[in-house]
Design a protein around this nucleic acid. Sequence first.
DNA 1: TCTTGAACCTATAGTTACTGTAGACATTAC
DNA 2: GTAATGTCTACAGTAACTATAGGTTCAAGA
Lengths: 147, 147
Amino acid sequence: MAHDLTIGRIAEAAGCKVQTVRYYEQIGLIPAPPRSSGNQRVYDDSAIHRLTFIRHARELGFPLQAIRDLISLSDDPNQPCDAADAIAKAQLSEVDRRIHRLHALRHELERMIEQCRGGRIADCRVLEVLSDHSLCETDDHSTPKER
Amino acid sequence: MAHDLTIGRIAEAAGCKVQTVRYYEQIGLIPAPPRSSGNQRVYDDSAIHRLTFIRHARELGFPLQAIRDLISLSDDPNQPCDAADAIAKAQLSEVDRRIHRLHALRHELERMIEQCRGGRIADCRVLEVLSDHSLCETDDHSTPKER
DNA sequence: TCTTGAACCTATAGTTACTGTAGACATTAC
DNA sequence: GTAATGTCTACAGTAACTATAGGTTCAAGA
């Protein structure tokens, strides 16, 4: 009987939109909660926990399918955790690639901003830099699939 | 004169799918090229250049709208480059936020993978870590809108 | 107590940035 | 010359939301 958690409350707690919560319910990522007499969803704290888990994983780039897998693993905690481990490892190398590329971009963005100061487009390197292939060669070419 | 660049060639050169190129043409991000006698698109090197530009910007997280803006700026190089500068700056802070978060995640993923070795889900911290709010507090709470 | 405004409900359509499929025509390689 | 591969259009599908319409419920103030 904590406090009555409405969908708005848990959405706010997890930092997402109300519709997103309903969407997650619809696709079976969170269980359908009981309803009040007036047909409104009533949650408990575990819902916040799960929703926060999902939002964190999402913000960090896990696709919903990976999250779904992790959740189903956590619902059955007697398995060996090779599967969770594999998901985490795959995610780690993806994260490394992103960090690498983002650092390269950061560098270029700073350079651009410096050089732009007061100039004209013609003198500005923003656009060149983005056409520059050197950004690629530092990194994978094997995985054109990104995000 | 150059070589006849088919859509397949430029897609390959830029590291994207053929359909993606047609899609960019359809939404007006790249100009419609001339056609061969058999109605197939024939490109020149500038198309590779523009397409590469777009792909780089996309891979680095620029939304198509920002790219569209940058392109239209570059087509008119006598303007002051405040606008390109503003786009770059906005992107920079976004990039910083992402890098920050990804580093936090990287750390946690490594910890998870360590702790997982040979264990069971019940002893594994992958799932806890992803529910952990401490990842948030290091970073923005003001911009729930992400990617 | 009544009322009004915010929050909730369902259902459906729209968004971004692609990706895939079908069925037909073109090109290239043997 | 024919078979494989590439390209064409048009349209449907995907992920992960986000917005809208039209209605109901709830909480707070007059």
